[in-house]
């Protein structure tokens, strides 16, 4: 029981990180119908920017942890957003209205480019970071096994919940969110109502990148090491999460992320750690066979 509870906590933490990345996939897919394969790399860049920001703040003598975390969070979101914006502007926008596969190929190219770019700038070695957030609770010690809930896990889960809640409000209630949903449904009509569609699409990339940056920061804090390759696996899993939840659906991405995190954790805990990646994909295959639209992506009954 204690072991199970511990895995649950670990799984939810991992799921939070995947969920944050998955939102970027699902939003971009929703608005331009394209899988942004470079999104995993945006997450990786978010982790590197966080890493650099920590070193800088350390050098400046800002060591009060909550303040440092907040500053790193903001810096990472801002700078990673610039990358997200630039990728869209350079690699996707010029291809809009071109044949369907063009932006997809461009995205794969962008993904490879960004990996190499970081490898050249930062080196191929893994970067270790001193633990920043330490300590935690111990709960019901029994059978020689204690369930621990670290402060870091609490921070990760809390920040994710707050971000996802504010994000859902933003999409559901504001004029910007309405414009984004309008673009998803009918881009021509959206322009006919006076909305700059290109700018709305850019904003979507920026928002996805900002969330990926938060995920990158958390990943770095949680695992303590990063390298230029982390975007690949995390990206594929987050993408899987988005498809699992129903691509295009925001709650779907959150749910999918959570599920992938849980599946991966429980699989490693009870079966074999080697096949943890296979487990997630097997579930995906099953879902796609029996529910091709994903868990929450139900096709609407519409008259158009």
């Amino acid at each position: 029981m204690e072991y199970f509870l511990q895995q649950l906590i670990n799984g939810v933490t991992l799921g939070a990180i995947y969920g944050l990345i998955a939102i970027g996939y699902t939003m971009v897919y929703g608005i331009i119908g394209m899988i942004n394969f470079a999104h995993g790399e945006i997450f990786m860049i978010g982790a590197f920017i966080s890493f650099i920001a920590f070193l800088l703040l350390g050098a400046l003598g800002i060591t009060f942890v909550p303040l440092a975390l907040l500053l790193v969070l903001l810096l990472a979101m801002v700078f990673t957003s610039v990358y997200g914006w630039t990728v869209e502007r350079l690699a996707y926008r010029p291809l809009r209205g071109s044949f369907r596969l063009a932006p997809l190929i461009s995205a794969i190219g962008m993904s490879i480019f960004l990996q190499n770019y970081v490898q050249v700038l930062q080196g191929a070695r893994v970067k270790p970071l001193q633990p920043v957030v330490t300590g935690g609770f111990q709960m019901f010690k029994g059978d020689g096994f204690a369930v621990s809930f670290s402060y870091l896990q609490i921070v990760i889960i809390l920040v994710t919940v707050v971000l996802m809640a504010s994000f859902s409000l933003l999409i559901g209630r504001t004029a910007l969110g309405r414009a984004q949903r309008a673009c998803e449904q009918d881009r021509v009509m959206t322009a006919l109502l006076g909305i700059d569609v290109d700018r709305t699409i850019s904003t979507t990339f920026v928002m996805g990148a900002a969330l990926a940056a938060v995920a990158g920061l958390m990943f770095m804090l949680y695992y303590g090491v990063i390298d230029f390759y982390i975007g690949f696996l995390a990206g594929i899993k987050a993408f899987t999460a988005a498809v699992l939840g129903g691509i295009g659906s925001l709650p779907g991405a959150m749910l999918g992320g959570l599920l992938i995190g849980l599946i991966e954790t429980f699989w490693s805990a009870y079966f074999s750690i080697e096949y943890k990646d296979v487990a997630a994909y097997s579930i995906l295959v099953l879902v796609l066979i029996f529910r091709p639209t994903g868990l929450l992506g139900k096709p609407e009954i519409e008259k158009v």
Partner: peptide, 19 residues
């Protein structure tokens, strides 16, 4: 017509008021 099918009537009208 090109109304937004997955938005409410009110939201459709809000979209109209963009400018």
């Amino acid at each position: 017509r090109r109304i937004f099918p997955r938005m409410t009537v009110l939201e459709n009208l809000q979209m109209g008021a963009t400018t």
